[in-house]
Simulated assay, not measured.
Amino acid sequence: MHTDAGVFARSHELSPRSHEQVVFCEDDRTGLKAIIAIHSTALGPALGGTRFYPYADESAALQDVLRLSWGMTYKAAAAGVNLGGGKAVIIGDPALAKTEALLGAYARFVNTLGGRYITAGDVGTNTGDLDVIGRHTAHVTGRSMAAGGSGDSARLTALGVFHSMRAGAEAVWGTPALANRTVGVEGAGKVGGELVELLLADGAEVCVSDVNEAALQRISQRHPAVRLLGSVAAAPVDIYAPCALGGTLTEDSAAALEAKLVCGAANNQLAHPVVEHALGERGITWVPDFVANAGGLIQVEGELRSAPASVVEADVARIYDRCRDIITVARGAGIGAGAAANRFAERRLDAIPRSN
């Protein structure tokens, strides 16, 4: 994507399905600078998390929010939920810039969209932040249970990735069992940490890398058997699980992978779509990120319709079947799993009549 391109050009570079609305928000009193991108409301209101991140500049923030919101449209469509795709980014270091006043100002901007966009958590925001946002807008999900929400979505996001990984393992090795498989988890944050728990409980051998030393130490203290590595991407692992920021799969990194399966929680894992072809050329199966990491979306969608926790967890477990079907279709059609997942999502989107 050309970083000097405008909003319209960038949107069309991502997909012929252009963004419906992009809103730039600034509040001088609190220092808030945010962008809210609504990609599609064809299936329902656009839902997507708020990422609070110290972007290098506004151009980088715009690029990220357009990519993430577009991805949310496909994630919701592929997950079978009646939601559209949106995303928001707040520009700044959450450790320095985040205040209740700033979050309140952001919530009031969300309100101006009249329910077309529903926000949730993402990198740099947590349930406590969503509770604050929820005091100023009803268009929020993922709040704490004390505030009437369903709590942090990390556990169910990780559970969805775990089931996706089992489906991928079945496609690669003929069995969904992860026992004695070596899994390299890149990113030991909330979702990565929950995934490590699930993998160890299933008998997998786990190694972890993270740029945050404190996160690594937390994993090490809790699970001494987990190996800490500087990088897991090129390590001798069976499964590479990117669970940090996206874009780690480039043509160069794909060429260095020893894993036979790639399945993780990070959004936008492929730096470019052609990378999936590079993985396929080396016999590496990639489970599309927007299918694998849909557990959190399914949770907050369940929160919106007041579904019981047991029902929501069963919905997340069905990600296994969806991934298995997508991989089967991809192999039968001689296409990548990403293309097969896109086709599944686009069939749902195309089935919605366009308004005149």
Rank of each mutant, 00 (worst) to 15 (best):
V262M: 13
I36V: 08
A215L: 05
R354D: 08
R29A: 15
G44A: 03
D93Q: 02
F24P: 02
L228Q: 05
G332K: 13
A345P: 01
A333H: 12
M145L: 14
A292V: 11
T3V: 11
D252P: 12
D27I: 13
T119E: 06
D131M: 02
E281R: 15
G230N: 11
G247S: 08
D315M: 02
A333P: 09
L198H: 07
K190T: 07
A314D: 11
T73A: 02
A254T: 13
S144C: 09
V237N: 13
T50Y: 04
A9W: 08
R51N: 05
G264I: 09
I239L: 15
G114K: 05
I35S: 00
A235Q: 12
V211M: 06
T73S: 06
G49Q: 02
A309H: 01
V23W: 04
A171W: 12
N293T: 08
G121V: 07
E194V: 08
I298G: 00
D321S: 12
M145V: 15
R318M: 10
I298D: 02
R155S: 10
Q217P: 02
G71D: 02
I219L: 04
H136N: 12
R282E: 13
A294M: 04
D122T: 00
W286F: 15
P45G: 07
N267T: 04
H272N: 14
S144M: 06
A214D: 06
V206E: 11
V185S: 10
Q221S: 09
G84D: 04
E197V: 07
L14I: 09
V89I: 07
P94A: 01
N180T: 12
A255P: 13
G203C: 10
I219A: 06
L257A: 13
T30M: 11
R135H: 07
I298E: 00
D4M: 13
H163Q: 14
E58K: 06
E100W: 06
P54G: 04
F290H: 05
G336P: 11
P353F: 00
V232S: 12
Q63N: 08
A351P: 01
V110S: 08
E58V: 04
E100I: 07
A330Q: 12
G332R: 14
R108M: 14
V329I: 14
I219Y: 04
A147I: 09
G114I: 06
M145F: 14
N111R: 14
P353T: 03
S11D: 05
